Computed example of a mutant assay.
Amino acid sequence: MSAQFEFGLNSFGDVATDGGREMTDAESVRLLIEEAQLAESVGLDVFSVGEHYKDKSVDSATPVVLAAAAQATSTIGLGTSVTVLSTQDPVRLYQEFATVDALSNGRTQLVLGRASAVESFPLFGYDIAQYEELFEEKLDLFLRLMYEDRVTWSGKHRASLDAVRLHPRMPDGGIPAWIGIGGSPDSVIRAARNGLPLMMAIIGGRAERFAGHAELYLRALSSFGYPEMPIAQHSLGLIADTDDAAKSAHWEYWEPVVTQISKERGFYPPTAERYAEEVDTGALYVGSPETVARKIAAIARANHLSRFDLKYDITHLPRDVRERSIRLFGEQVAPRVRELLEEDAEPWRETGRPVVEIVKGGKAVHV
């Protein structure tokens, strides 16, 4: 399993600081490209950018950012932390990501979600009351566009299509597309029903509580006649040379962001005690390389993971702290996690049974 376990970086385009100065939006966009290059240089597998429409985030035009990253890198996968499919036009989305895939020579992927932040609904004129209906209809159309050569389609929320063939073309079968979930069993079943890999966004509480979702997904895949597919986890964190340095740096910038979100969404503001609990036993992956590696390895076992994505940026987190975290994640955490998972795999090797079955490019392979 260790050789195939993947590591990704997720950015929400958070504006950074540099020497105490808030970077401009333009500088923050260019920083994303530099960080994609850095992620590739330290051996990470995927660099992903989100989609947000709020102050201090610069990821509203994700395909443009990924197209630039495609030209600045050569091997790393390029994806979305989540694409808010509910407020996207599937035709345009297909064309944008077919273009990015061409520019990257086949390195592009997507995580499709319904949105936890809903700023895009009023911005683009959609009714939040149609949250579920929009996603279902647009997912159906997008998958048909990826899987079929010519598409005839009609629905409620966009113009009908009559034998449409889009250009530029994606490869046969489209590009890898994951379903992102935040905890809804219905979303788990949707991913399995459509035969798509599962990305679990776990940003608070004990991450092990999602083990039931992973097991439900695997059972549902089997019931729908699909082979096992990858399960990934997206979580927040920061890596520094010591546990204390990581926690101190992360808390300083995490606390004001979560305090603001708590006011907007009506939950309890963060406290130092709750933060320490999240770091120790919850879904924050903050600490030294060894601490974070052991925590990732443990959750990989519990949640049946074949990939872990670290959301590494926070509003105003200094660029040098971001850089150090990326370096440590690729150079020390990833190989250490693989080493820990390799130890788990040894008893299986003795039996001659396959260690794991994962899906690469839509095909199941034994490792």
Results as ranks from 00 to 15, higher is better:
Ser2Asp: 11
Leu9Gly: 01
Leu9Cys: 04
Asn10Lys: 01
Ser11Arg: 02
Asp14Gln: 08
Asp14Cys: 09
Ala16Gln: 01
Thr17Ser: 13
Met23Asp: 08
Arg30Trp: 11
Ile33Gly: 10
Ala36Asp: 10
Leu38Val: 04
Lys54Thr: 15
Lys56Arg: 15
Ser60Tyr: 13
Ala61Leu: 13
Ala67Lys: 06
Ala69Cys: 15
Thr73Cys: 13
Ser74Gly: 05
Ser74Gln: 10
Thr75Asp: 03
Thr80Gln: 07
Thr80Asp: 03
Thr83Trp: 05
Leu93Pro: 02
Glu96Cys: 01
Ala98Thr: 10
Val100Thr: 09
Asp101Ile: 02
Asp101Pro: 00
Asp101Ala: 01
Asp101Lys: 03
Ala102Val: 09
Ala102Cys: 06
Leu103Ser: 13
Asn105His: 10
Gly106Ile: 05
Gln109Ala: 11
Ser116Met: 10
Val118Leu: 14
Glu119Gly: 06
Glu119Asp: 12
Phe121Cys: 03
Leu123Asp: 01
Gly125Ala: 12
Gln130Tyr: 07
Gln130His: 13
Tyr131Arg: 15
Phe135Glu: 02
Glu136Gly: 09
Glu137His: 12
Leu139Val: 05
Asp140Ala: 09
Asp140Lys: 07
Asp140Thr: 11
Phe142Val: 08
Phe142Arg: 03
Arg150His: 12
Arg150Ser: 14
Arg150Gln: 11
Val151Asn: 14
Gly155Tyr: 14
Lys156Glu: 07
Ser160Tyr: 03
Val164Ile: 15
Arg165Asn: 10
Leu166Phe: 09
Asp172Glu: 15
Gly173Lys: 09
Gly174Leu: 03
Ile181Pro: 00
Gly182Ile: 01
Gly182His: 01
Pro185Cys: 02
Asp186Ile: 06
Ser187Gly: 15
Val188Gln: 09
Ala192Pro: 01
Ile202Val: 15
Arg209Trp: 00
His213Ile: 00
Ala214Gly: 14
Glu215Cys: 02
Leu216Ser: 04
Leu221Pro: 08
Phe224Asn: 04
Gly225Arg: 03
Pro230Leu: 04
Asp241Asn: 15
Thr242Val: 03
Asp244Ala: 09
Ala246Asn: 02
Ser248Val: 11
His250Met: 08
Glu252Thr: 09
Trp254Met: 13
Trp254Glu: 11
Val257Arg: 05
Gln260Phe: 15
Gln260Pro: 05
Arg265Cys: 04
Arg265Ala: 03
Gly266Trp: 11
Tyr268Leu: 08
Ala272Thr: 11
Tyr275Met: 04
Ala276Leu: 10
Asp280Glu: 11
Gly282Ala: 06
Ala283Phe: 09
Val286Lys: 01
Val286Glu: 00
Pro289Glu: 02
Glu290Cys: 04
Glu290Tyr: 07
Ala293Asp: 00
Lys295Tyr: 08
Ala300Arg: 04
Arg307Pro: 11
Arg307Cys: 14
Phe308Pro: 06
Asp309Tyr: 15
Asp309Arg: 08
Tyr312Asn: 01
Tyr312Gln: 02
Thr315Val: 15
Pro318Gly: 08
Arg322Thr: 11
Glu323Pro: 01
Ser325Leu: 05
Ile326Glu: 02
Arg327Lys: 14
Arg327Phe: 03
Glu331Phe: 04
Ala334Cys: 07
Arg336Ser: 12
Arg338Lys: 13
Glu339Asp: 14
Glu339Thr: 15
Glu350Lys: 12
Pro354Tyr: 10
Pro354Val: 14
Ile358Met: 01
Val359Asn: 12
Lys363Leu: 15
Ala364Val: 08
Val365Leu: 08
